[in-house]
């Protein structure tokens, strides 16, 4: 019996998944996807939020603390997107290598040009971000910039894998570049189209494709739509209706549907991040689905 069992156990031990070199805590699914693209088997990624959650409003849950405690690298958006929970998780986790300012805290929004940086901030304007709009993942050009910086950061904190990260990054950048050219061609029909958004979270997509924002369903960023505001919006848009109304998968659909009925324009649900739609299972899928749904809606 033992002569069978022992080789069996050895085989089982040998086939256990190899321990990844780097344990990564990704605050949002888009960065989890990017880390996997760049790190492959060298990284083990935990995603703190899903596409169905609003990363402004998750809680500092025990599971998040336990995972950040063991992480070698945290990849987050920054620009105050996670300010409601990340500081607490960081403090409670007591990860000695992740003090503020450590290179093991990677903030994507710090790697790109941010839009809508307010000159003056007051909470009377709602949930404003003093560092600018944080939702940078809706522009694939900015994702390419984040990928550059992230590949370098990975090589910096895991020098043994530098060659892997370089090679995987080159491969990703080539595929991404080709895809971006394809999406640009596909999205050309959207240029100068007017749209209404639920929350001001698409400014980088607007910047990239040349969409014009005619209004928001939220009266102030972060405040839920009110009947008064929707009525005013309907009145303002009646003569020059938008081509479409969009909301992220995590947002409540009722206000968008109501306005869609009033103005007789399509309401579109966009994935917003990886996992926000069935086919949006990675960064490529995210933009494939986004472009497909947008172009079908304006056709």
């Amino acid at each position: 019996m033992w002569n069978k069992l022992i080789p069996g156990l050895l085989l089982a031990a040998a086939t256990l998944p190899a321990h990844a070199a780097l344990s990564v805590f990704a605050c949002e699914p888009e960065w989890a996807s990017l880390v996997s693209e760049l790190g492959g088997d060298r990284v083990d990624v935990y995603t703190a939020t899903s596409a169905l959650q609003d990363p402004h409003h998750v809680q500092a849950r025990p599971a998040l603390i336990a995972h950040l405690r063991r992480a070698d690298l945290a990849v987050c958006t920054g620009a105050e997107l996670e300010i409601g929970w990340l500081p607490v998780v960081q403090r409670k986790a007591g990860n000695a290598r992740m003090a503020n300012g450590s290179p093991r805290l990677f903030f994507a929004a710090e790697q790109v040009q941010r839009l809508e940086v307010p000159q003056h901030v007051t909470r009377a304007d709602g949930d404003v971000h003093a560092s600018g709009n944080p939702h940078i993942q809706t522009d694939p050009r900015r994702i390419a910039q984040v990928a550059n910086a992230l590949a370098q950061r990975l090589a910096e904190i895991d020098p043994d894998g530098a060659a892997t990260y370089r090679q995987r990054h080159q491969d990703f950048a080539a595929r991404w570049s080709a895809a971006v050219q394809r999406w640009i061609q596909q999205g050309a029909v959207l240029k100068d189209k007017g749209w209404v958004v639920y929350h001001d979270q698409w400014v980088y997509l607007e910047d990239w494709l040349g969409l014009r924002r005619l209004g928001e369903l939220e009266p102030k960023p972060g405040l839920p739509p009110t009947p008064t505001h929707l009525a005013e919006l309907t009145e303002a848009l009646r003569d020059h209706p938008p081509a479409l109304i969009v909301r992220a998968a995590a947002m409540d659909p009722s206000a968008a549907q109501w306005l869609s009925g009033k103005l007789d324009v399509p309401a579109v649900e966009l994935p917003f991040t990886v996992g926000g739609a069935d086919a949006a299972d990675d960064l490529f899928g995210l933009f494939d689905v986004t472009l497909k749904r947008l172009t079908e809606a304006v056709r």
Binding site: G132, A144, Y165, Q170, S177
Partner: peptide, 22 residues
């Protein structure tokens, strides 16, 4: 060598001129 092994930025569809983040 290790330093050089860090990937170089790959240019993809350059960003249009937007005023830099103040």
């Amino acid at each position: 060598e290790k330093k050089v092994a860090a990937p170089e930025p790959v240019a993809v569809a350059p960003l249009p001129d937007v005023p830099p983040t103040p």
